[in-house]
Simulated assay, not measured.
Amino acid sequence: MTATATASNLRGLWLLLAAAALVVVAALSVAIGTRDVGLNDIVSALSGRVGTIGEAAVAMRIPRTLLALLAGAALGLSGAIMQGVTRNPLADPGILGVNMGASLAVVVGIAWFDMASAYAYIFTAILGAGAAAVFVYAIGSMGRGGATPLKLALAGAATSIAFSSLVIAVVLPRADIAGGIRAWQIGGVGGATFERIGPVLPFLAAGFVLALFSARRLNALALGDELAAGLGENVAVARALAAFAAILLCGATTAVCGPIGFLGLVVPHLCRLLTGSDHRWLLPFSALGGAGLLVVADIAGRILARPAELDVGIVTALVGAPVFIWIVRRQRVRDL
């Protein structure tokens, strides 16, 4: 057996283990909360019964867990794509300002245009995310050297801060919507229902398909634009398709959950320690890793603040920053 085949088999084993771990954490998410439930309550709730308090509690946790799985997978995948497209190890939807662009668009739609429908939220968030991505890339491309990783990170950070200030400016005069928007701005999966998840599924599905379809192209882009073009790759099309997938995933997730930070930054680096830089493996690993990490963060938020809860956006911010610093300082993270 060749070394390549052995490495592929090992990655396949890790992928199966990651999927199995995801099933376990999903089961824990259904079982753990502010109210203890038994196995009978879980089985009854899964069959559609909500006659007891325990069954009702489990029935509420099922869509919440599903939303955490979908949102985590989308953010982990979009982070890996953004790092591949920009060849920037610090790229993620939060640092590049994409999440805040989606947030600003949604807040403006609510405050100025009385936006209320789920599809309006989603389309507006995706347009805001796309506009923010184009704006950051344009700013980062100015000057000598083009869009370098450092310039993109600085442009994204400055844009994110500016958009955050604009969100506050839009919300301040509107006391009637301020409370709801502030809660949404933290980022969370609480209060999820199947009716709330349904409209976002087609957008996430399209984003997932486009992302996985872009894996080989991202491998070519990692070699540099000139070499990728020499291998027959249309660099502009490859970068645009991958970026569009990331924007779809970020925008749709932000519309339903609010901006959740650090997940898209930390997860690809963790997964890269197992898979290397081959995006054919990195992307599915990032999706599974993001889903698992967000569910674990949601479980932690329920436990740490009992009988209240911490929104998952707070937990990912508290955990993500030190974990990322530890990865950079203690591990040999592969270059992009």
Rank of each mutant, 00 (worst) to 15 (best):
A26V: 06
N219H: 12
A18R: 02
L90H: 03
G97Y: 01
L231H: 04
V267Y: 10
A116N: 05
A80I: 03
A155E: 09
D92H: 01
M115A: 05
L310K: 10
G261Y: 12
R217S: 15
L273D: 10
A192H: 08
L166V: 11
G156A: 02
G261M: 14
S29Y: 06
G54Y: 02
L66P: 07
F324M: 09
A31R: 10
A246V: 08
F244A: 15
L274V: 13
L39G: 08
L13T: 01
D278C: 04
L231W: 05
D298K: 05
V107C: 09
P89A: 06
A133P: 06
V50C: 12
A132G: 05
L70S: 11
Y119T: 09
G146S: 15
Y119S: 05
A138T: 15
G79W: 07
G54Q: 00
G97L: 06
V108H: 08
F244C: 15
P173N: 10
D41V: 07
F285Y: 05
A178P: 12
I314T: 05
A305W: 07
L201P: 06
G101P: 00
C271R: 04
L28I: 03
G38N: 10
G188Q: 10
N40F: 11
I186R: 09
L22I: 07
R196T: 11
A105P: 01
A321N: 07
A246R: 08
G264T: 15
A5V: 12
P284G: 01
R64N: 07
R35K: 12
R182K: 14
A245Y: 08
C250A: 11
V24W: 00
N40R: 13
V209T: 00
G101L: 04
A118H: 03
R272M: 10
V296G: 07
S44H: 11
S29V: 09
A245N: 08
Y121Q: 05
A252R: 11
G320P: 02
V171H: 13
V136L: 08
S214G: 02
L248E: 12
S286W: 09
V58H: 00
S29G: 12
G180P: 14
L201K: 04
A129W: 02
F203P: 01
P93H: 00
G187V: 10
L293C: 12
L150H: 14
A80P: 01
L241D: 07
G198V: 14
G109I: 00
I53A: 13
G289A: 09
W281G: 01
A132W: 03
D41C: 08
A111R: 04
M60S: 15
L218M: 12
V106I: 11
G251Q: 11
A242V: 00
C250V: 15
A252M: 14
N219A: 13
A111T: 03
F208L: 06
L304V: 14
G207T: 00
V136N: 03
G232K: 06
I197S: 13
Q331H: 15
A211Q: 03
G230T: 09
N219T: 14
Y119G: 00
L212M: 05
A147Q: 12
A246N: 07
I95T: 03
R64C: 09
D225V: 14
Y121H: 04
V237M: 09
L127A: 09
V319M: 08
G97H: 01
A19Y: 00
V108P: 02
I177L: 15
A229G: 11
G179E: 15
G232L: 02
G97E: 04
A255N: 13
A5S: 13
V58Y: 01
N99Y: 05
V106Y: 04
W112C: 08
